[in-house]
Each structure stands twice: as structure tokens, then as C-alpha cells.
Amino acid sequence: MDWDFAATTFWRLMAALPLTLEVWFLSVVLGGLIAAGVVWMRVSGSRPLEILARAYVAIFRGTPLLIQLFLVYYGLASLPAVRHSILWPVLRDPLYCGVLALGLCTAGYQAEIFRGALLAVPHGAGEAAKACGMSGLLMFRRIVFPIALRHALPAYSTEMISMVKATALVSLITLWDVLSVALKIRNDTLVTYLPLILAGAIYFTINYILGAAFLSLERRLSPHLRARPS
């Protein structure tokens, strides 16, 4: 084994890590905001809005991210209306296109997670809050949100890890994330496995840390479930 080559490859991959994390973070945040809107539409009580929200979730969860990414990056840009709009400077940039595509996709999943968590809030808790005279916002902040958050965490943690993995597709749109650098090194040096193995180790480590962080958060947020005598 060529340790020099392994070390150089590793550091070249690490140099691409900030981009991977940037795409991940921005798309997760964007996805969370869109998801909040979608959930609001879904529980709004208005039939058209509800149908729209259902369609959104069906489309973005029911089709491969690869196609969504392609349509956002290459498809949108092929429409002259988009190229001549004020959004073009943003959509021209592959980074923002990647963030947009990944954000739209994760929003479909996050919306379902949020909705499931909202449904899990006991009815009585809301009634009790109202009986105490809490306003809608206060009730959401003090009662609904904390309970829903706890319910959402396990699924949310899985989705966050899925998104780290999803960032590996942005090589399609000319971004130099960890996997695309690994593939390039592989094609240039023609070493078949080592770059892939090192890239795999990096992704695995990030996801391991992320999973552990969410687990400890879960434990901290649910002290009432801890140390239950069996």
C-alpha cells in the first residue's frame, strides 16, 4: 500500500468536506422552512391548500433525487424566462441549484415527519393549555412544539443522515464535493478502490457523529423516559 498516495488522497478529500457540509446545512435549513409551509398548508383546513401540500409531498418523495437535481440545474436554466429573470444570478450558480434541489426534496420528507409529530401531540395537552388561557402562539411555543419536537427527533435524525448521503449526488452538477473529488482522483490515477474507501470512511464518520449527537439530544429532551425501572 502506498501511504503517501493514501495521505494525499485523504487530504484532497478533506479539502472538499466544507463544500459537502455547506450543501448539507443550507439544504436542510431551506428544506425545514419549506416543510413548515407545507405542513401549515396540510393542516390549514383549506381543501385546495391541502391537496397542493399532498401533491408536493407525493412528487418530491416519489421520484429520484437524481432527476430532481437534473431538472433544477439543467432544466430550469433551459427556460429563457428563468435566464432573463432576476433569479438567474442565483440559479446560475451550481451551489445554489444543488441547495435548492436538495432542499425541495428533503422538505417533502421533513413535512411528513413534522406532520406525524404534530399528530402525536395529545389532544388533552392542547385543551389544558387553552383552559389555562394560553394564546395560540404561546401554546405552540410551550406545549405543542416541545412535545412534537421530541416525537420528531428519531425520524428527523434519520433524515439528516440521509441528506448527508444525498449530497454525494451533486457531482452531477459540477460541484466538487467529497465523492466527486474521489471519483476524479480515481479516474485520473486509475486506482480503483482506495479513493472510494477513503470517501466512504469520511461519510461514515460524519454520519456516525451526527447519529450520536441526535441520540444524546433525544436523551436530554426526554428525561421523563430515562431510567424507567423495569
Partner: peptide, 18 residues
């Protein structure tokens, strides 16, 4: 310099003005 997976993707970006 931008590197594309396929020549077709590159051609699209050329037509799109990227």
C-alpha cells in the same frame, strides 16, 4: 474550468449560458 460527467451536460450548460 468546469468539468462535467458527460459531454451532453456540458453542451446544456453552454446553451444555457453558464
Amino acid at each position: 474550468v468546469k468539468e462535467y460527467k458527460t459531454t451532453d451536460d456540458r453542451d446544456l450548460d453552454l446553451k444555457n449560458g453558464r
